[in-house]
Deep mutational scan, measured.
Amino acid sequence: MAAGGDHGSPDSYRSPLASRYASPEMCFVFSDRYKFRTWRQLWLWLAEAEQTLGLPITDEQIQEMKSNLENIDFKMAAEEEKRLRHDVMAHVHTFGHCCPKAAGIIHLGATSCYVGDNTDLIILRNALDLLLPKLARVISRLADFAKERASLPTLGFTHFQPAQLTTVGKRCCLWIQDLCMDLQNLKRVRDDLRFRGVKGTTGTQASFLQLFEGDDHKVEQLDKMVTEKAGFKRAFIITGQTYTRKVDIEVLSVLASLGASVHKICTDIRLLANLKEMEEPFEKQQIGSSAMPYKRNPMRSERCCSLARHLMTLVMDPLQTASVQWFERTLDDSANRRICLAEAFLTADTILNTLQNISEGLVVYPKVIERRIRQELPFMATENIIMAMVKAGGSRQDCHEKIRVLSQQAASVVKQEGGDNDLIERIQVDAYFSPIHSQLDHLLDPSSFTGRASQQVQRFLEEEVYPLLKPYESVMKVKAELCL
C-alpha cells in the first residue's frame, strides 16, 4: 500500500493539533497551500530580480507567473513527485505547466533550498508574528487579574506546605514575570531571523556568478533584492546548502521555554482548584465526569500541561538535527523538520489560546482563602504575639514557653481530632496574655502579614508589564474561544 493518505478522510490519521486544537490561522501558515504558494512567490521574486539585473526574462513571463501564483494543481504535483521522487522539481514542473512561456526560467540558477529553506524562514517569521500578540493578550488578562487582587491576602506555599502570606495578585505576578520573559525572547528570536537568500547549491553562489558572467556586484544585488522582497532586513552571508540548523534550535528553545512557563502556571491553577481557592472557567453544560456528576475538573489547565510537556520535548529534535548536518548538509534534517517545526508552533498556539481562555474567566473564592488563612495564621502570628507581650512588660522566655504549650495543644486538636485551630481562643482565655487581649485582632490582621506584596504588584505592572504590552494595544480586544 502506498504511503500517505487522504487526510480529510475519517479513515486516515490526522494530527489532533490540526484537527482538534490549533487555530485556523496557525494551521494555514503550515498548510501545503501556504507552503507551495510561497515557493511560487519566491520563484517570481527571483525572476523579477534577475530581470532587473539584466537576464533575458520578459515582462510577459513575469506576468504569467504572477497570474498563476494561486493556480496550484495539487493532484498534478503529487503525481509528479511520485514520478520524480523530488518535491521541488515536482512543483517546478507543475508551475511550468500553467506558465508555459515562463517554464524555462522558473528556478533559474537556484537549488531546492532556495524555495525550501527560504519558505521555512518566512513561515517561522509569520508563525512567530501570530504567537506574539496571543502571548501579549494572556499577559494582559493576567495583569488585569493581578491588579484587581493585588491586596487580597492568601496563604503562600513553599514545598506545598503553608508559608508566609502573600497576595493573590502577587502570586499571579510570578506567572506574568515568566511570560514577559517569554514574550521578550519570542520577539528577540523573531527579529534575529535572517533570510537564507540566493546562495546556490553549497552556499557559494557559483551558479549565479556564472549567470551574471562573473559580476560579483550583481550577485550581491540579486541576494539583497530577493531578501528585501521577502520582507527581511538581512540575509546570511555564510550558508551551506541550507541555512544553519542552529536557527531551528533557537526558535524551538524559546517555544519550549514558553511551554515550561505555561505548565507551571496551569499546575498552580490545578492545585488551587483542589484547594477550592480558584477555578478555571466551567461552562453551564460542561460535564466533569461521566460517573461523578459533582466533579469540576480543571480540564483546560490539564490540557495545557499535557501539550506543554510535548512542546518542551520537541527542542531535542533540532538539537540532534543540527549535530548531524555533515559538511554542507545531509538530508537527516528533512523529514524531522517537516514534523517538529509545525508541531512546535501548533502546540504553542494551542496552549496560548487555551491559557487566554482560562485567564479571561478565572474565578476566585475569597471566603475559602480566608478560612485557610484562619487555619494557619495563628501559628504564624506567634512571633508577633511574643513581641507584643514583651512590649507590655512580659518575659520573652516565659511567653515563648506559654505559646509553645498552647500551640501544641491547638495542633493536637487540628491533627488528632480534625478540629479547627483554636490557638487564639486559648490565648484569649489565658490570664497571662490579658495585657494584649485587646491587640489580638490587630495582630491577626492578614494584611499585616503580606509585606509589600501589593506595592510590588503595582510597581511591576507599571514599570515592566504595561510598557512591554504597549506595541500590542491594537490587538488586545480579541477574545479566545474554545470549541473543545
Rank of each mutant, 00 (worst) to 15 (best):
A2L: 10
D6P: 12
P10A: 12
Y13Q: 10
A18R: 07
Y21D: 05
A22T: 14
A22M: 07
F28M: 12
F28G: 03
R33S: 06
Y34M: 01
R37C: 06
T38N: 00
R40Q: 14
W43M: 10
W45K: 05
E48A: 03
E48D: 00
P56Y: 08
D59W: 03
D59S: 08
I62L: 11
I62R: 04
M65G: 01
K66S: 10
K66C: 00
S67L: 12
S67C: 07
L69H: 04
M76Y: 13
M76L: 11
A78C: 00
E79V: 03
E79W: 08
E80Y: 03
R83C: 06
R85N: 05
H86W: 11
A90V: 09
T94N: 01
F95S: 03
G96H: 00
C99G: 04
K101L: 08
G109A: 05
G109S: 06
G109V: 02
G109W: 08
T111A: 07
L128T: 11
L131H: 05
P133C: 11
A136V: 05
R137V: 11
R137H: 07
V138L: 13
R141M: 13
K147R: 07
K147W: 15
R149C: 03
S151Q: 11
L152C: 14
L152S: 00
G156W: 03
T158M: 01
T166M: 03
L174G: 11
Q177R: 10
D178V: 11
L179W: 07
C180D: 01
M181G: 11
R190H: 10
R194I: 00
G197V: 01
G200D: 12
G200F: 05
T201N: 10
T201P: 12
G203A: 00
A206G: 04
S207A: 12
F208I: 03
F212I: 00
G214A: 03
D216R: 06
H217A: 14
V219R: 13
T227F: 13
R234N: 09
T239C: 15
Q241A: 03
Q241W: 00
T242S: 15
V247I: 07
V247L: 08
E250W: 15
E250Y: 07
L252R: 04
L255A: 15
A256G: 09
S257D: 02
V262R: 06
H263S: 12
I265K: 11
R270V: 09
K284N: 13
Q286H: 06
Q286A: 07
I287C: 09
S289E: 15
S290R: 06
A291I: 13
M292S: 05
Y294P: 13
Y294S: 08
Y294H: 02
P298C: 13
P298D: 15
M299V: 09
R300C: 00
R303I: 01
R303C: 15
C304A: 01
M312W: 12
V315P: 06
T321L: 05
L331I: 00
S334D: 05
R338I: 10
F345E: 02
T350G: 11
T350N: 07
I351M: 04
L352T: 09
N353Q: 12
N353L: 14
T354L: 09
L355E: 00
N357C: 06
V363I: 09
V364Y: 13
V368I: 15
E370A: 01
R374M: 15
A381D: 12
E383K: 01
M387S: 09
I403V: 14
V405F: 15
V405E: 00
S407K: 02
Q408L: 10
Q409I: 02
V414L: 07
Q416N: 03
E417F: 11
G418P: 01
G419L: 06
D420E: 01
I424E: 08
E425V: 08
D430L: 13
Y432I: 13
Y432V: 13
I436N: 12
I436H: 09
D445K: 08
G451S: 03
R452E: 12
A453R: 02
V457K: 01
L461C: 11
L461D: 06
Y466L: 03
P467I: 15
L468T: 07
L468F: 05
K479P: 15
L482G: 04
L484A: 13
